Lab assay of single mutants.
Amino acid sequence: QIFVKTLTGKTITLEVEPSDTIENVKAKIQDKEGIPPDQQRLIFAGKQLEDGRTLSDYNIQKESTLHLVL
């Protein structure tokens, strides 16, 4: 699982696999929060994550925290 922290300070927990794409993660966030993926920007280690890449591409491991910017 990974954590996604929103600007409001809320933390969302997501069940993911390293092979999941960023697009996939955004879809999971939409399921939980109702935020359309095209409004979501995910930041990890100061980098904006691209939809077509996977979590493992960015070396995002379990218990990692991503930041969600709208």
Rank of each mutant, 00 (worst) to 15 (best):
Q1C: 14
Q1M: 13
Q1T: 14
Q1R: 13
Q1A: 09
I2C: 02
I2L: 08
I2H: 01
I2F: 04
I2N: 01
F3K: 07
F3T: 07
V4K: 00
V4N: 01
V4E: 01
K5G: 04
T6Y: 12
T6P: 04
T6R: 06
T6G: 07
L7G: 15
T8F: 13
T8H: 14
T8Q: 11
T8P: 05
T8N: 12
K10P: 06
K10A: 09
K10H: 13
K10S: 08
K10F: 09
T11Q: 07
T11K: 07
T11N: 06
T11E: 06
T11S: 07
T11I: 15
I12L: 11
I12H: 03
I12D: 01
I12K: 01
I12N: 01
I12E: 01
T13Q: 08
T13D: 04
T13L: 09
T13E: 08
T13M: 11
L14H: 00
E15D: 13
E15K: 07
V16K: 01
V16Q: 02
V16D: 00
V16H: 05
V16L: 07
E17R: 05
E17N: 12
P18S: 10
P18W: 13
S19A: 08
S19N: 13
D20Y: 07
T21K: 09
T21N: 04
T21Q: 04
I22G: 02
I22S: 02
I22Q: 02
E23I: 14
E23N: 08
N24W: 11
N24G: 09
N24M: 15
V25D: 00
V25K: 00
V25Q: 00
V25E: 00
V25M: 05
K26Q: 02
K26T: 02
A27V: 11
A27T: 11
K28S: 04
I29K: 00
I29M: 03
I29E: 00
I29Q: 00
I29W: 00
Q30I: 03
Q30P: 02
Q30A: 14
Q30S: 11
D31R: 12
D31V: 14
D31Y: 10
D31I: 12
K32H: 09
K32S: 11
K32F: 07
E33M: 12
E33K: 04
E33R: 05
G34L: 04
G34V: 02
G34W: 03
I35D: 02
I35R: 02
P36I: 05
P36A: 10
P36D: 07
P37H: 10
P37K: 14
D38N: 11
D38R: 11
D38Y: 12
D38S: 13
D38T: 10
Q39N: 11
Q39W: 10
Q40A: 05
Q40L: 06
Q40S: 04
Q40I: 13
Q40H: 04
R41F: 12
L42E: 00
L42C: 01
L42F: 03
I43Y: 15
I43S: 09
I43K: 06
I43M: 13
I43H: 12
F44H: 08
F44A: 03
A45F: 09
A45G: 14
A45L: 13
A45C: 15
A45I: 06
A45T: 05
G46P: 01
G46W: 04
K47R: 10
K47M: 15
K47V: 15
K47C: 13
K47T: 13
K47E: 12
Q48I: 14
Q48N: 10
Q48K: 08
Q48C: 15
L49A: 02
L49T: 03
E50R: 07
E50Y: 06
E50A: 09
D51L: 06
D51S: 08
D51P: 07
G52W: 11
G52V: 07
G52M: 09
G52L: 08
G52D: 12
G52F: 13
G52K: 13
R53T: 06
T54V: 07
T54F: 06
T54E: 04
L55M: 06
L55A: 02
S56D: 08
S56N: 09
D57S: 12
D57N: 05
D57T: 04
Y58S: 03
Y58Q: 04
Y58L: 06
Y58N: 03
Y58T: 02
Y58G: 01
N59S: 08
N59P: 03
N59A: 08
I60H: 01
Q61N: 10
K62F: 15
K62R: 09
K62Y: 15
E63F: 12
E63D: 15
S64H: 07
S64T: 07
S64K: 04
S64R: 04
T65G: 03
T65W: 08
T65Q: 06
T65H: 15
L66G: 02
L66C: 01
L66W: 02
H67S: 09
H67E: 12
H67Q: 11
H67W: 11
H67F: 13
L68F: 03
L68E: 01
L68A: 02
L68K: 00
L68S: 01
V69K: 08
V69Q: 10
V69D: 07
L70V: 14
